[in-house]
Design a protein around this nucleic acid. Sequence first.
DNA 1: CGGCGGTCCTGTCAGC
DNA 2: TGCTGACAGGACCGCC
Length: 274
Amino acid sequence: MPELPEVETICNGLKQAAIGKIVEEVLARRFDLRVEIPRNLPEMLVGQEILDFKRRGKYILVNFSGNKTMIVHLGMSGSFVIYNNFRNSFAKHDHVIFKLNSGQEIVFNDPRRFGLILIEDDENVVGNKFIAKLGIEPLEDEFEGAYLFNLCNKRKVNIKALIMNANLIVGVGNIYASESLFLSKILPIRNADSLNKNECEALVLAIKEVLRAAIKSGGSTLRDYITSSGEKGYFQHNFNVYGKQGQPCVNCQNMIEKIIQNNRSSFYCGNCQE
DNA sequence: CGGCGGTCCTGTCAGC
DNA sequence: TGCTGACAGGACCGCC
């Protein structure tokens, strides 16, 4: 579910609410996610102070005082919510609950269990199997037209799959890929190596614009995405093409089309985009 | 190595 | 109402 703007929103919310708090208890209710949750998660974290939350791609990195970093991914359906009081019951799919000395609790809930929770010593995070291979952060200055043009050069994969490939560019998921391609007037089915420098420049600017605007709106809630305080995002009201098949394009009134690429839905205007 | 398709899992919704 | 199949914000793995 969450793409970069949603993870960024969650991360910022947790920063506000939980930095400086001490973990008093960790309840792991099931361990069998996409990647097995470490059995010793509780003993590694109990007594530790939460120092910081950082985002790397769609991963949340929680830095603890004891030289430990918890690496969290929310998969398609995960949430990471902080409650201001201990609850008396568990919700369905509440897999891990972190009780803090402030009386708050942070709950990792993931119905589809595509997410993951890992622990690394701080110095090993960069080399972690999942973190090491991640591509460039799209909101960093280094990500500009020439950088994308180099990525596209000689790659025949369709441009939508390329910008969604986290080994090349992190954080762009199925929603923001379609929205960025619409803004930059590029068809999602184009081969990456067919884009010229101007098109790469336009696409970079569109990706940055869409992601920044979505962060400002607290992300996009289609079904179950919620922020760390349990609220919905509202960028979905600003979609131009995602989920809009059969509706008129905001620019030209042509019907927005939907196709399947790499087993994922893509949405575009066949008149505005080329 | 690059690219593609299948797969993990549960919930929801459309259609019959 | 109940069943069935398609589909969902991600990404890994194995195959060509």
